[in-house]
Design a protein around this nucleic acid. Structure first.
Lengths: 245, 245
DNA sequence: AAATTATTGTTACAATATGTAACAATAATA
DNA sequence: TATTATTGTTACATATTGTAACAATAATTT
């Protein structure tokens, strides 16, 4: 976790520079081995798991704050980001978990500490290339790891609800080429694209119907053939006509 | 403008009870005479127009805050509400307009006044029965009026962008019966329903195709006939099978 | 009372999209 | 050379959508 690079801010937080009561949470999706993966933080010594998140600087655009969080966790810039909902449930005001984190880390605080107030969470989901990501833990966390979306650890506060809503929005957007562009390699076979769809939607799709729909959609360009080494006809490889960025 | 009832809070705001930097803005849609209407506030003596909005109490759910704003402006409870986006552009931090409002109203303030900070706006759209609404101005405003969505006055800050995004979401949700349930009378003819669709979508629809789609959707129940007084066949009246609430 | 008018409800048919099965192509293996 | 597994293609049934034609009918006009 973060052995290669460390994007953590070196200085401790100066809370004066941040908007109080507003947090940014990110559901970071990756795709590997036919599994939809999510990046999850574990707070030091507390056994508390959470979505990667951060705060909004007073001089910063919302989306830039989300980009900053993503850079700090993944080292990647120019990531696909989509704001999907803002969560403000009062049970988010449960200071228990954060209280535990501060105490276990021997950090000084009183009950009016920035982190112990009620927070409204503006939430984004991100689509990243699993292979390019080097997950980095932050100053309060001892790990930042990919988890299969079907085997998430118990998450803090309403973070599981946030994940579920993000997945719902991802499913609604699956036909936009930006999904495949960011979760697959540059080139892929039709079966690999179908596997991605089936993983995200959580259901099997008809092979020929899928093939036809994709070819008619106009978002794919067929390239050469790909030798698989298997005892059967070799598939074509495709790429999206749209540029990644 | 609030001649019948006044839902304004009697007491001046105690800013201590509210989350700083977080506002709630509402795009309130009504429908009348084949026009999509929006409720707009005009601040006293300033010529500044804005969406109805308010602030989030520290002990209040986000959606309850939006409901409170709606009640204060329309006198209605149990309104259909949908959170669609959160706006946080730095240009929202432009204190010019609010500065003007406070000054013109001879309200004391300094540059750290609650209202002069940067705000993040969690935005909802609402669907209300035009005929049941009695628009009420608030303490800073001298009017709260319906405007045709095609003839809105110039709006404060990014409020026009907020309206446009709300309309986009309304258009995406138009096939859900909740739209017709809240914008039309309990019973209506097929033509009246089609008029609503055409107004919201901003385009003409094919009559027979619309009729068939609606009947096959299963969300309509046909009642008796309606004498229109016009020299032609009288239409059926319909209602939605789903209950209003 | 019969013809006219305007709009509604229904039917028909074409065009398009979707679900499913059959079949041909082919790269490696037996 | 035959076998095997998977791919690309074609075919056909079913469902959906776009469009036009036509029949029904409530009030008005003649």
């Amino acid at each position: 976790m973060g052995t290669m690079t460390d994007h953590r801010p070196a200085e401790p937080m100066n809370w004066e520079l941040y908007m109080p009561g507003i947090s940014i949470d990110c559901v970071i999706f990756g795709y590997h081995n036919k599994e939809l993966k999510i990046l999850i933080l574990e707070y030091k010594k507390s056994g508390i798991f959470a979505l990667p998140g951060g705060f909004l600087r007073k001089d910063e655009e919302l989306k830039d704050a989300a980009k900053r969080v993503l850079f700090e966790r993944t080292g990647l810039r120019d990531i696909y980001l989509n704001q999907f909902h803002t969560f403000g449930s009062l049970k988010r005001g449960d200071i228990g978990p954060m209280h535990t984190v501060l105490r276990k880390n021997n950090m000084p605080f009183d009950n009016r500490h920035f982190l112990l107030q009620r927070f409204i969470s503006v939430s984004y989901y991100a689509l990243v290339d699993f292979k390019q990501v080097d997950p980095v833990a932050d100053i309060l966390s001892d790990s930042c790891q990919w988890y299969d979306s079907h085997h998430l650890p118990p998450l803090m506060l309403d973070h599981h609800e946030i994940f579920e809503k993000a997945l719902e929005h991802l499913r609604n957007n699956i036909d936009r080429s930006v999904v495949g562009l960011n979760l697959l390699d540059d080139t892929f076979t039709m079966r690999e694209l179908q596997n991605l769809y089936e993983t995200i939607l959580g259901e099997k799709l008809n092979r020929t119907g899928f093939h036809r729909k994709m070819m008619l959609s106009g978002q794919l360009k067929r390239l050469g053939k790909k030798k698989t080494g298997k005892a059967h006809r070799s598939p074509f490889v495709y790429k999206f006509t749209e540029e990644k960025k």
